[in-house]
Amino acid sequence: MQIRIDLHKCNGCGVCAEICPVDVFRVNEENRLAEARYEIDCWYCGACEGDCPTQAISVRLPYLLP
């Protein structure tokens, strides 16, 4: 997994889903917490990491990069 969300820290505010430039995140309909639904589209700009108010998100580089 390229994007790690600490579900104990996530408060479901949806900031990540709001700001991601490439639309990676959604708030999961069932548990109301953040989900990196389209992480294959991540540009690893790190905007989500910086803007998450509870520091719940950690972006790793894609496994596919040599």
Partner: peptide
Amino acid sequence: ETGVLHAVFDCPA
């Protein structure tokens, strides 16, 4: 060259 569609120089949006 990585073949990763969004691993590009400029913002892929």
